Structures are given as C-alpha cells and as structure tokens.
Simulated scan of single mutants.
Amino acid sequence: MHPIADVITSAQQQIARQAQPNRFVGLLEHGQVPRERLGRLAGELYQLVSSDRRSMALLASRFPSPPAGDLFLTMAEGEGLALGLLMDFAAALGTDEEQLRGYEPRPPAQAYPAYLAQSARYGASSDIALALLANVRESGETYTRVADALVAQYGFQESAVAHFRFFADTPRSLLDQAEATLESGVAGGDDPAAAIRCARTVHSLEGEFWNCLARDLDVP
C-alpha cells in the first residue's frame, strides 16, 4: 500500500486538476454581490453547518476509538462553535436564528452536506479524514477571501465575520488527528481509492455550494 503521504498527494493533485475559479467570491471581492444574496449565504450556511455537525457526531459514534473518535468529536464541537459564530454574521444582516431556521435552502447548495451525511452514515473513517486533509488549503483560502471581502467591501466588523475566520484557520492539531485517522483506517483495510474519490467529491460539491450563490447574478 502507498504511504499515507502519497495518498494525500494524489488526492490533492486530482483536486487541483478539477479546480475552477470561485465566481461568487470573485464578485464579493468587487462588492458586486447584493446584500440580499448575503442573507442567502447566511441561510445556506446555517443549513450546511447544522447538518455537518450532526454528520460529525454520527462519525464519532460509528468510530469512537482514537484517533478517529477524537477527530470527529473535535470536528463536531467545531461545527457547533461555527454555528454560534454564524449568528453574529446573521445579526449584522438583521437576521436572527428563527429566520435562518425558516430559510428555504436551494437544493444544489445543500448537495455538499447531503453527501457528507451519506459518507458519515456509510463511509469509512478514512474518507472524511482525507477530504479534510486534501481540501483544507483551498477551503481555508476561500473563507479568508470571503471574510476579507465582507470587511473591505461591505463594512462588516471583524466580530461579524468570525464564522469565516474560524473555517479559514484549521489547527495543526486537527490535521494531525486527520492524518492519524487516515493512516489507521488504511492500515485497517479502508480503500485509499474510495477515500480519494470522497475527497474529490467533497471538493466538487463545495464548489457547487458557492456556484449556487452566484447563480442569476447579472454581473459580467
């Protein structure tokens, strides 16, 4: 079996080949996203993060032993923290949690958390561990760009964009847990090819989340 570093590198290379420009973030950086669409961003994120929190908790219950149990519990706790921080962004938009709960999500935007829930229910511990490791750099850069644009172009205070800063900076300790989970899973018989497929799919569906937010914006 290939060393774990080779599995991670292969996933990253395959993801790099399918990468596309993020139109929504590009428009956001030029101040071309209307405020109504920012409300949609908050609503979609509320649904996404709420679902991901449950998915991580399910993974922790399926794989309770360390290192996987520690990884997924930490990720579930992180999603809970991020959900709380999202309320600060919503408040800056004049929205509260009751309104977010009543938001009607766009199905394409929720394909990512739906796939993550499927992986949490039926996948191996290695799958989400590799998806995290292979996508962390691009995902972190995306959230950094969103936070920076909201501050520079829309005048949000840093306290209002803490949700995005949270996901922009993944602790090294969490990545170490993910590497240990991947290594342990593969050693126990998990299929690296399936994990790489999961990482690619997560990347593609994360892109679809942002694409959905950019859809129908009448900007060249």
Rank of each mutant, 00 (worst) to 15 (best):
residue 84 G to M: 05
residue 10 S to P: 12
residue 107 P to G: 01
residue 47 Q to H: 15
residue 211 N to R: 12
residue 156 F to W: 00
residue 194 A to T: 15
residue 190 D to A: 08
residue 150 L to K: 02
residue 75 M to G: 02
residue 56 M to Q: 12
residue 31 G to H: 11
residue 154 Y to P: 01
residue 71 L to D: 01
residue 209 F to C: 08
residue 48 L to I: 05
residue 115 Y to E: 04
residue 104 E to K: 12
residue 144 T to W: 10
residue 180 A to R: 08
residue 68 A to K: 01
residue 138 E to P: 00
residue 34 P to E: 00
residue 137 R to I: 12
residue 155 G to M: 14
residue 177 Q to T: 03
residue 203 H to Y: 06
residue 64 P to G: 06
residue 22 N to I: 02
residue 138 E to R: 12
residue 66 P to A: 11
residue 167 F to S: 14
residue 119 S to F: 07
residue 120 A to V: 02
residue 33 V to I: 11
residue 101 R to F: 05
residue 183 E to H: 13
residue 180 A to G: 05
residue 44 E to I: 11
residue 116 L to V: 15
residue 170 T to D: 12
residue 201 T to M: 06
residue 136 V to R: 13
residue 166 F to V: 01
residue 171 P to C: 09
residue 15 I to V: 03
residue 217 L to I: 01
residue 117 A to M: 03
residue 42 A to P: 11
residue 207 G to V: 02
residue 205 L to N: 03
residue 101 R to W: 11
residue 157 Q to G: 15
residue 195 A to S: 04
residue 90 A to H: 07
residue 154 Y to M: 06
residue 57 A to C: 08
residue 185 G to Q: 10
residue 160 A to Y: 07
residue 104 E to C: 10
residue 1 M to I: 02
residue 134 A to L: 04
residue 34 P to A: 00
residue 61 S to W: 07
residue 66 P to F: 05
residue 211 N to A: 14
residue 66 P to W: 04
residue 130 L to N: 01
residue 41 L to M: 03
residue 172 R to C: 13
residue 130 L to M: 08
residue 63 F to E: 01
residue 34 P to V: 01
residue 146 V to C: 06
residue 52 D to I: 09
residue 38 L to P: 01
residue 36 E to I: 09
residue 195 A to M: 06
residue 183 E to K: 13
residue 160 A to K: 00
residue 7 V to M: 10
residue 73 L to P: 05
residue 42 A to G: 03
residue 202 V to N: 11
residue 68 A to C: 05
residue 21 P to M: 04
residue 210 W to P: 00
residue 164 F to W: 00
residue 32 Q to H: 12
residue 148 D to L: 15
residue 88 D to V: 14
residue 117 A to G: 08
residue 175 L to V: 02
residue 35 R to S: 08
residue 40 R to Q: 12
residue 54 R to S: 13
residue 183 E to C: 11
residue 3 P to K: 10
residue 60 A to F: 09
residue 153 Q to K: 10
residue 35 R to Y: 02
residue 41 L to S: 10
residue 107 P to V: 05
residue 83 L to P: 08
residue 98 E to F: 07
residue 130 L to T: 04
residue 7 V to A: 14
residue 36 E to W: 03
residue 26 G to F: 06
residue 38 L to C: 08
residue 50 S to D: 14
residue 113 P to F: 13
residue 138 E to I: 09
residue 165 R to A: 07
residue 98 E to H: 09
residue 183 E to G: 12
residue 95 T to E: 04
residue 100 L to N: 05
residue 182 L to Q: 05
residue 121 R to S: 08
residue 141 E to H: 09
